[in-house]
Design a protein around this nucleic acid. Structure first.
Ligand SMILES: [Mn+2]
Ligand SMILES: [Mn+2]
Ligand SMILES: [Zn+2]
Ligand SMILES: [Zn+2]
Lengths: 141, 141
DNA sequence: CAGATACTGACACTGAGTCTCGATTGCGAC
DNA sequence: GTCGCAATCGAGACTCAGTGTCAGTATCTG
């Protein structure tokens, strides 16, 4: 469940047969510097040397590799996030804007119950929580 | 958990002090005719007499009233849906494209456990399932 | 170090949603 | 009924997100 370093991602890229290009290295650094989630255009803005199309291509590639995931904000817009390769969900703080990953075996097993009850076979799912993080709650006690 | 009729929504609008205008009536009919979920532009296309801005304004109003909800498709794009006012989630069939609502008390109680374990206080959440519906599974047995 | 080809960047394009502002219109008051 | 006026509307320009094309460039393999 730990953060993936740009370095490790570079190794993953070449291991999978993708080329290690300057734009890709560049974008990995930028994303790591942008905090816990970022919009596509924030990346574009922070990497002026890299073309727009390349930013979107790279975002998609990294999603396919499982090291970038989408975050659905409360208004429905999408953000992106360097994320652990494992399955996880997001808890978004509406006060400070932070995103935390979490996973819950109990939750996954409830989904299996839903499958049995409804006949729907779940191949993938997405769960986002919106609320206030522990730090913000402590602060405004 | 039942479908909300255009008529009932019209009554809801005036009860809340909103005007019953021709564009609003028109859009409610159109949405009811568009099936279980639809894009904003599908509504625009199906209601040529109504201005684009009004379509988006009306979508937002109906979301605020709780009779339209967002559906996050598997690629992250948003669709809309005339939906029950109660809290619910979506099961999207990747084969036939249908959307079904469901709710699960067990799931909600797991979220309360997550709250206690993490200190994050959940004010809202969003869960979408992607898979194959019972009908499609039966068909391609 | 050369060649095949994966990758890039400029640019034009689509789709989704917002904003402004002058023109309409629904509806409560009379 | 009709009057007044705030609520609403429509046109259109604008922003932001993402895609497709295509000629040029750079990476990796041999
Ligand atoms: Mn899960
Ligand atoms: Mn729920
Ligand atoms: Zn917070
Ligand atoms: Zn189906």
């Amino acid at each position: 469940m730990s953060q993936v370093s740009p370095d490790a991602i570079e190794r993953l890229l070449s291991r999978r047969g993708y080329r290690l290009t300057a734009p890709r290295r560049n974008l990995l650094e930028v994303m790591a510097s942008l905090g816990d989630h970022f919009s596509a255009d924030a990346v574009v803005g922070a990497a002026p040397e890299v073309g727009r199309a390349t930013v979107f291509r790279t975002l998609r590639l990294l999603q396919d590799l499982g090291v970038v995931c989408q975050v659905v904000l409360d208004d429905g817009t999408l953000a992106y996030r360097l994320a652990p390769e494992e399955h996880h969900h997001h808890a978004l703080c509406v006060e400070c804007g932070s995103v935390e990953d979490f996973s819950s075996p109990a939750l996954e097993s409830v989904l299996r119950e839903v499958e049995e009850a409804t006949g729907f076979s779940v191949e993938a799912h997405r769960l986002e929580l919106y609320g206030r993080c522990a730090a913000c709650r402590a602060a405004s006690n």
